[in-house]
Design a binder for these strands. Structure first.
Lengths: 170, 170
DNA sequence: AAAAGATAATTGACACTTCAAGTATCCAGA
DNA sequence: TCTGGATACTTGAAGTGTCAATTATCTTTT
């Protein structure tokens, strides 16, 4: 903080709006860079693990993870929402998983426009194996942080998320 | 924390390793999800802004940002390192920027394998305009967080980054 | 019930990304 | 000097992502 520079008891001269704003600029930028770097590093680690251990990718894993929590299956549009990607994208990833027999499209009898996508038995088994390791990777990566710090980090990110969503939707 | 469940003074029965581990699992996973969501939301906002205001993309902006700090130009391999992407990727993005006259490849007289990539005058002007707005977006997104919280978040992310790097390189 | 409008999913064009393979150039040693 | 190995960059294939346009199916309105 700007305060450090005035450790001597000089009257609190406006170390001034300008300087503070300037510092804030750089602080926010640095913070963003650091946030981005952290996330990217972790994501790269997970991608590499998924690739080397299971020959699969993050989007595929992500799609299967969504289905695992929905035994009745999910519509393409629901997958799209939950994965936060566009519909066209879901089509492609689903195609790949279906070709490998990990997932099936079942036509919805009530509405012939929709597909219900489900994990196959094989897909379910494979996901279980992957999920177990995936969880271990995450714990290894975040573990050294300590309970208290994790809670703190979670709270700060929660606030950030709120602000970002307000800014984007409001 | 598991402690909350034992507010009553029951002897500190091992609220137990298993429960605690279980909680930690979920805590780490939740934390990772939240970190990912935050970063993605911000990144999406920036991408949209770059697209709507300047008709450009984050990789292009990123590449120009690297060059802006290196008036002597950068080698393709240096760009690759700094942007943390593979060389093949830099080729493509550079091609696009060069076609638009924002960047030039100059052959290095000392080593004919090397290109020095530089911002053109036009590229420099355009980058200045983009950088100013970009900084404002970031400040708007992180601003509501408060000086102290930003510092705290920065520190926590710093630790996380350290651990992740150790895990990945060590 | 026919037309109009909304919704579900796919397609195709383009951008970004990785990886592996290829080309050109440099450098070091016989 | 020339040969072998490293280095710099490009290329091409495949996956992921967006967007806009299309097709198929519902739903609503008249």
């Amino acid at each position: 903080m700007a305060k450090e520079k005035t450790a001597l008891k000089i009257a609190d001269t406006p170390v001034d709006a300008e300087t503070r704003v300037h510092d804030d600029h750089h602080q926010s930028l640095r913070l963003w860079l650091r946030l981005l770097t952290c996330t990217n590093q972790i994501e790269i680690a997970i991608r590499q693990n998924l690739q080397s251990r299971f020959g699969t990718t993050l989007p595929r894993f992500d799609l299967m993870a969504q289905l695992e929590r929905a035994p009745e299956g999910l519509k393409m549009s629901e997958l799209s929402q939950r994965m936060m990607v566009t519909g066209g994208n879901v089509t492609g990833v689903t195609d790949g998983l279906e070709k490998d027999g990990l997932v099936v499209r079942e036509v919805d009898s009530a509405d012939r426009r929709v597909f219900r996508v489900k994990l196959t038995a094989e897909g379910g088994r494979q996901f279980q194996r992957m999920a177990a390791e995936h969880e271990r990777w995450i714990i290894d990566l975040f573990g050294p942080l300590g309970m208290k710090q994790k809670r703190q980090l979670g709270e700060l990110l929660g606030e950030l998320k709120t602000h970002v969503n307000q800014r984007r939707n409001g």
